[in-house]
Design a binder for these strands. Structure first.
Length: 413
RNA sequence: GUGGGUGUAGCUCAGCUGGUUAGAGCGCUAGGUUGUGGCCCUGGAGGCCGUGGGUUCAAAUCCCAUCACUCACCCCA
């Protein structure tokens, strides 16, 4: 038997219901904020990702599914969504008519990592991007949208962490200072952190090794070295979050793994997920559009991890998504009649199915029960002869007869 | 890429100081009850004990290898 490949998986009932719900909720909430859907290919030229995400990031260096096509061009499965959104924005010259665009997207992403809880090689993201708006108000509103999404799903316990990464210039200066500081204790750092000194020094700040924690305790933090404009921007975001009554926590050690972020950086976290506790993350990327060949255009966005949110939903939210009716039809004639009657009910907006098996009645009821059906509709030769159908309320265990011609939403209520 | 744990029925697992025919619960299925569910009773199907090799009179059980899954590191949504 051919088996699925490592890190990939099937999404089957009943879990698939949860997925539908997330998609729908995200679509609805984002629409309320004026967003529209965009969709881009799963495959792009490799350079799109290496240029936007950063040559020396882990994602680009060792996690992408990269291969050559038949003409020897280097292509990659997308490891995240923002790069393609920016490419589409620039390539289609969206800015020409109006620089402001608010897009959402969703779909699978691919990263070649060692799978563990909440981390797979194929995973799904729900993402939102706003182009053309530089104000901090937009950052706050975007965060508010994410927040509302979690609320609509009925999830509590999702925490918001906030930080500022400064602008590109401030970060460069800060980074030099940080490296200088850390170099002073180089020998005491763990192997990973010594490596990070040259790749991503800010990562040292959230290393879990006690020695590193000790050293980074007094390290300079970006948030304390913001320029006045970045500081004002950050303070505005904070003030608005408070006005919106969105609880948040400033976490000076949040670091984004993608190079293009600046200023506002945030994460949605849950304590219920184990090691992979980020259910969403995002921030500002004001220079990316220009880097990718477009006009200088500010932007801010986030991405949510569908699998991780699904874990939370399975933990927290009880599903009751039953059918309205379950048609128990016995005999060829009754089944044919039931198909027609069921369709009539569906046209009126009811959900239900017809049982086509020839199993014992006992069985059909057990199945109606498992499908969480409100009514069992019983139709056999006896009923056909009399022109009626037995309608059994599964919960109340009461039964009444309704004429076949009159079977409709009204008579069921 | 690094480290730990686990692979026995569709699912959850027991059996593992070697010993005849490999078990339980749930689920599935047939019936008890020719057309009325959740409970109860009885029967049935379903296993190369992850895979390959080794030790032994004898391996689900011990040894080696390998693969898969899983948790953590790393990284990130």
């Amino acid at each position: 038997m051919t088996k699925r490949i490592k890190g990939m998986y099937d999404i089957l009932p009943p879990e698939s219901r949860i997925w539908r719900r997330m998609e729908r909720t995200f679509e609805d909430v984002s629409r309320e904020f004026g967003f529209e859907r965009a969709a881009t290919p799963l495959i792009e030229r490799t350079e799109l990702f290496s240029r936007s995400i950063g040559e020396s990031t882990d994602i680009v260096e060792k996690e992408m599914y990269t291969f050559k096509d038949r003409r020897d061009r280097s292509l990659s499965l997308r490891p995240e969504g923002t790069a393609s959104m920016v490419r589409a924005y620039v390539e289609n010259k969206i800015y020409a008519a109006d620089p402001v665009a608010k897009w959402i997207y969703s779909g699978p992403m691919y990263r070649y990592e060692r799978p563990q809880k909440g981390r797979n090689r194929q995973f799904h993201q729900l993402g939102a991007e706003v182009f053309g708006i530089e104000g901090a108000e937009q950052d706050a509103e975007l965060i508010a949208m994410g927040r509302l999404f979690f609320e609509r799903l009925g999830l509590d316990g999702v925490e918001l962490k906030l930080n500022s990464l400064g602008d590109m210039e401030e970060r460069r200066t800060y980074r030099e200072g940080l490296v200088a500081y850390l170099e002073g204790s180089r020998d005491a750092l763990c192997d990973d952190c010594r490596r990070r000194l040259s790749t991503n020094p800010m990562r040292v700040l959230d290393c879990k090794v006690p020695e590193c924690k000790q050293i980074s305790k007094d390290a300079p933090l970006m948030l304390d070295h913001l320029g006045s404009q970045s500081r004002t921007h950050f303070e505005t975001v904070c003030r608005l979050l408070e006005a919106l009554e969105i609880p948040y926590e400033i976490d000076k050690r949040i670091v984004r793994g993608l190079d293009y972020y600046n200023r506002t950086a945030f994460e949605f976290k849950s304590a219920e997920l184990g090691a992979q506790d980020a259910v969403g993350g995002g921030g500002r990327y004001d220079s990316l559009v220009k880097t990718m060949g477009g006009p200088s255009t500010p932007a801010v966005g986030f991405a949510l991890g569908v699998e991780r949110i699904a874990i939370l939903l399975e933990n927290q939210v009880g599903e009751e998504n039953g059918l309205d009716f379950y048609f128990v039809a016995m005999g060829r004639n009754a089944k044919e009649r039931a198909v027609v009657l069921a369709q009539r009910l569906r046209r009126e907006g009811l959900r239900g199915e017809v049982d086509f098996t020839d199993r014992r009645l006992k069985h059909l009821f057990a199945r109606a029960e498992r499908q969480n059906a409100r009514y069992a509709l019983i139709l056999g030769d006896a009923e056909l002869e009399r022109g009626i159908v037995q309608v059994r309320d599964m919960k109340a265990k009461t039964q009444q007869e309704i004429a076949l011609d009159e079977l409709a939403v009204k008579t069921l209520e």
